[in-house]
Amino acid sequence: MTGKSGVRDSLKRLPLLEILAPLVLFYGLRWLGVNQFVALLAGSAIPVVGAVRGLVAERRISGVRLFVLGTMAVTVAGSFVTGSPRALLLRSAVLTVALGFFLLATLFFRRPFLYEAARVVFDEDKQRAWRRSWDDFPPFRQLLWRISLIWGLACLADAAIRIAMALLLPVDVVPALDDGLLVVTLLVLVVVQRFYGRSFLRRNGLRLHGARVAPLAEA
């Protein structure tokens, strides 16, 4: 649905520094003999620093960054109460659960998540084409609702796997598996979105090129 470069572009947009830096720090500290709790806490501080830096740079409170900081505060506080590093491992699961429920909640909005997410990254010309596609083609609207549902359910499934890993697997292997799961989940979602979206539109005599939907007869 997003074109041949969709998977590659989506992976490029991952915040690699914020993903890899906590991982490197955690395993580096563990190699130096630091205990699991302190090593996880140190790694968890990097996303917080990034969120705070973004707040200062933009001089406004972003809902996403505020949510990340709030989630961090809850999980860190819980880890101190329980004294268990596993509470810190649940941070990514909490974020993913919340994201999944938010995506599902957008199904009750005027427009679903996928419509708004794509519109945000488009320039003005593509935004106009995107709006016209939404207004003019009911199958396109139906597809965006369906794909948004798939994203929401996938996030909840991803979170369930993360919770199981955090509670059942050795603490030292979970951070690496968490990051690997992020890549796998995103890859699967983008592939499903692309091929299912293309097939659905074709069945309805349409095609998507960039932000513009057109009848196949015009291709």
Rank of each mutant, 00 (worst) to 15 (best):
A42H: 08
F200D: 08
L167A: 13
A42Q: 12
V190M: 01
V121K: 07
T96P: 07
L17R: 11
R131C: 09
V213Y: 04
G28Q: 12
R131G: 09
L167Q: 08
L40Y: 02
F140P: 03
A217T: 15
I19K: 00
K4E: 09
S133T: 06
Q193T: 13
V121D: 10
W31V: 08
V38T: 13
D136N: 12
A105Y: 15
V64H: 14
L11I: 09
V184H: 12
S84Y: 02
S79G: 15
L208F: 08
A217W: 07
V74P: 11
A57D: 11
A45W: 01
D135T: 11
F26D: 03
A57L: 14
F137H: 14
L107W: 09
T106K: 07
S84V: 03
A117N: 06
P175M: 04
I46R: 01
G152F: 06
L55C: 02
L99V: 15
L32S: 12
L167R: 08
V120M: 13
D179T: 15
T82D: 06
D123V: 05
A73I: 10
G180S: 06
R198V: 12
R86P: 03
G50E: 02
L181D: 03
L168F: 00
Y196K: 01
I161F: 07
L16M: 07
A57N: 09
V174S: 04
R202N: 03
F26C: 04
A157Y: 08
A98N: 01
L55T: 14
P85R: 11
L114C: 02
V56Q: 10
R212L: 13
R162C: 00
I147G: 04
P112G: 08
D135L: 04
G3H: 02
G152M: 09
R194C: 01
G43D: 05
G197F: 09
V81M: 13
L20Y: 13
S148M: 06
P15D: 08
G78Y: 11
V174C: 03
G100V: 08
G70K: 00
G152Q: 06
P47G: 05
A129C: 10
L153F: 07
A159F: 02
R8I: 07
R91M: 14
V49K: 02
G28D: 08
Y27H: 14
A160F: 01
G100D: 00
F80V: 11
D135M: 03
Y196L: 12
A93M: 04
A211E: 03
S199C: 03
R59A: 09
V34Q: 09
